[in-house]
Every structure is written in structure tokens, then in C-alpha cells.
Computed example of a mutant assay.
Amino acid sequence: MKSFVVLALIAAACAAPQQNPQDVQIVRYDVNNGGIDSYNFAWELSDGTKHEEQGQLKNQGTENEAIAVQGQYAWVGPDGVLYTVTYVADENGFQPQIQQGPGGAVPSAVVASLLG
């Protein structure tokens, strides 16, 4: 009897409506390669996922030459909340700032994967 209940729960979970990844469309895609010293890109999908980033070479030709990047990415979680990570990546490392839309907390696994 227990195995029947477990199988029934698995069947119900599989029958729940899910968005097919094949149904997601690219709604925006911009790339600008500014040559050797800068770039930027932005893309957005029909499911609300998006990513924007700009990078610029700092201290070109010196011993301290490095690329400084800033950007953000966002997605709609299974709870319907828009989550956004804004970041800077430079000589001080990757520095994310996690934001969320109203009504939800950022899942702890997301926080751990960004800061860990």
C-alpha cells in the first residue's frame, strides 16, 4: 500500500504543468565588442531570465592591467518572484549583491552558490 501511495504522488508530480525549455524564446540579444579595451552584452528570454554585462580594461599596458566587469542577471523563481543578482568583478574578486522582488526570500542554495 505504501508503494502505491508513493507511486501515486510521483505520478501526480510528473503530471503537473511544467514549462518546456523548448518553449523559451530569445527576445533580446545585443553584443558590442568595443575592441581590445571594452565589451558589453545583454540577452533576455521569454521566461523572464536575463543577463547584462559590461567590461572594461583598466591600467592597460601596465603591470596592474585587469578587466573590470559589472552586470546583473535575473530569473523568475518557481515561486513566481523575480530574483536579481547585481555584481562587480575586478581586482577585488567577484562581489555579488542579491536582490529579490516582493514576496519571497532568496533561496539559501542560491546565496551559498554565489558567496561560497
Rank of each mutant, 00 (worst) to 15 (best):
D90L: 02
A42W: 13
V24L: 04
V81R: 01
A8N: 03
D30F: 11
Q25P: 03
G48I: 09
I10T: 05
L114N: 04
Q54Y: 12
S113G: 00
P21T: 12
N59Y: 04
A105Y: 06
A89V: 01
E91D: 02
E65F: 09
T49K: 11
P107K: 06
G48S: 12
V111L: 14
S113Q: 08
Q25L: 11
T62H: 14
L82D: 08
I36E: 14
D79I: 08
E91L: 01
Q100L: 01
E44V: 11
Q54P: 01
S113M: 07
A68V: 04
Q70E: 13
I36R: 13
A12H: 07
I26W: 03
I26T: 10
L82G: 02
T84M: 03
A13D: 07
G104S: 09
V24G: 04
G101M: 03
T49N: 10
A12Y: 08
A74G: 12
A16H: 05
N92A: 03
L7S: 14
V76Y: 03
S3V: 15
Q97L: 06
K2Q: 10
V27I: 15
A66D: 06
N33T: 09
G34N: 15
A11E: 00
G61M: 12
V31M: 13
L57N: 10
E65C: 11
A11F: 04
N33F: 11
G71R: 05
G116T: 02
A66G: 06
Q18F: 09
I26L: 12
Q72P: 07
N92D: 08
Q25D: 09
A15E: 01
G77Q: 08
D37Q: 10
A11I: 01
Q72F: 15
G71E: 06
A89G: 00
G101F: 03
E53N: 05
P78K: 15
E91S: 02
A42M: 09
Q54N: 11
